[in-house]
Amino acid sequence: MKALFISAHDFRSLRRASVHFIAGEMAARCTTRFFSVGLSLLSQYRGDTRTGLASDANRLVTHQGVQCYLWKMLWHPFHIRRPGLRRMEAAMFRAYRTMVPAIPQQWLRDSNIVFIESGLAVIFIEDIKRLNPNARIIYLASDELDVIDCAATIKSEFKRNFDKIDTVRLPSQYMAESMPHSRTSILVPHGVDRSIAAKAYPNPYGPRRSCVAVGSMLFDASFFRIAAAAFPDLDFHVIGAGRAAADLKGHNIIIHPEMAYAATLPYVQHAAFGVAAYRHDNSPRYLIDTSLKLRQFGLFSIPAVCPYFALGTASGRFGYTPGDAASIASAVSAALSNRAPIIDTSQSWSEVVDRLLSPADFPDTKLWVAPAEDCIA
């Protein structure tokens, strides 16, 4: 079997998303390739997290058993927000599809199974079926296309080619309503790597009690301004938030650049609690299920502080209202005083991939859609 991943991530990136863990598991089972799309001078100017890999673009590089190809051009198609220019936008995306380099073009032709991650990769669904009619396509719905502000062309291509997808993997039941239909959808929550929490890491903190936040997704800097002022004896470590944390200052706010996933683990293991400071700007309710950072805090059995809309029913989470100083102070205090055991019940990534490859063998992949009254606003 030969597997191909198409994504706007790169398998070698410091930042880890669910697609990295799935690809790594597939590499243990078969020949696995990773085609990274959407890198250009334009995306680099906008802060593309793959910029550090640009020197290795447009050539084959094998990393941890995965054959990687990062496609970089001077330009890439983008979201034109003026409805009157939709034809121009569509033309850009069509032109981009015709320029796929020879190596990933061959991968499209000879892969048995192709994983398409939500986002720009969607535009290649039609090409996969044209070049390789027998390939099985699995759509990895990491995010809803509206939430990540995809171009109208991407969204229209997704709807037009949706029935060419063999399996639609949803990590949360709350994502089902954003799909054209649910006949090919399966529910497979994110996994965890339990081996990472079984290791003992050196404590990266000094003598002061510390908490940690990792990543930049929907990052709400106001949480740290409020919480750091309310708890001067607690250090707040912010890792890899980039520009979103650029204006944060304070004697107990420590800003770290983006670092390799493995390098963040000591900070998580030794934290008094973890922070998932998501903005409230129409944040999707599926964050309850899909937040990898919240899942990782549970894996390491440390409390987590997060907005109420991401709270869910997992143990060890303490909610607050974004921007509300009293509720933030209450959540932090509760996390610091928590003594109840925190147990993560997530599947391993190996179990996740088992379900992606053979969903009919696992009754728990059957999708259910929550009634409207059970949905979180």
Rank of each mutant, 00 (worst) to 15 (best):
P322F: 02
E258R: 15
C30Q: 09
D110T: 14
K293A: 07
W75Y: 08
T345R: 10
A277T: 05
S178P: 07
R339Y: 01
V238G: 02
A90S: 09
M99F: 13
V168C: 10
M73Y: 00
D324M: 12
A260H: 11
L234V: 08
I226C: 00
V268K: 14
A276E: 07
K249D: 07
S358I: 06
Q67K: 01
F309H: 10
G65S: 05
T32F: 06
R279D: 15
C211G: 07
Y45H: 12
A314P: 02
R243P: 03
H181L: 00
R16P: 07
I123M: 13
V305D: 03
A151H: 09
A377I: 14
R81Q: 10
G119T: 12
R183C: 02
R355Q: 05
E258K: 14
V19T: 11
I113M: 08
D281N: 15
F362T: 10
L299A: 08
I343T: 10
G47V: 00
S7R: 01
V238D: 03
A221T: 12
L234G: 07
D127V: 06
V238W: 00
A3Y: 07
L53A: 02
R285Y: 15
R295K: 15
S13M: 13
S222W: 04
P266T: 04
M73E: 00
V122L: 06
I342V: 07
R86S: 08
Q296H: 15
G119N: 09
A360G: 12
T31C: 02
A141W: 05
P101F: 04
R243Y: 04
P77M: 03
R94N: 10
A200P: 04
T98V: 04
